[in-house]
Amino acid sequence: MTTGSAQLGDLLVVSSAGGVLLDALALGRSYPGSCSFVAVDAVDTREELAAEHVEFRREPSLRRPLGLLAESVVAWRSMRRRRPGLVLSAGTALAVPWFVAAAVLRVPRVWVETFNIIDRQGLAARVCARIATLVAVQHPARLGVHLRSVLVGELM
């Protein structure tokens, strides 16, 4: 694991508020290396990430392409500065521009399917899963839904 972490470098976790934060936190805090966060500014992210290195952002709307583009530029600049070895998210909309920027910069991307995804996912999840390097799933039945997935079991 140490070898893998050294190869992959620092982890950048991108997260919205709510349930997706719980999965992202679980993996972020257990990463065998350095980890920082980009999160939507909310009551729960403020409390849970109080002791972490975090950059707060506003949740973009998937219905506003210009907003997504602007956030992608912010993400691209931030990642050029941070140079993370891996980007991880469980959702939701904020992850899209950051995954796009990571893909442009060829930074590996892990999309985490939340525990309550049994069948069809939302739009942000479909986009991020499509451009992810790897999708982490929590239910055996979700293996095979994605091109590249791994069953990691329950995270929270």
Binding site: G4, S30, P32, P108, T133, L134, L151, E154
Partner: peptide
């Protein structure tokens, strides 16, 4: 009962698959 959570195992699996992918 809900299964035990093993986050170290989750990362071992993810890092292995990412290494294979790379």
């Amino acid at each position: 009962k809900p299964p035990e959570i093993d986050l170290d195992r989750a990362w071992r699996l993810l890092l292995h698959e990412l290494h294979v992918e790379a």
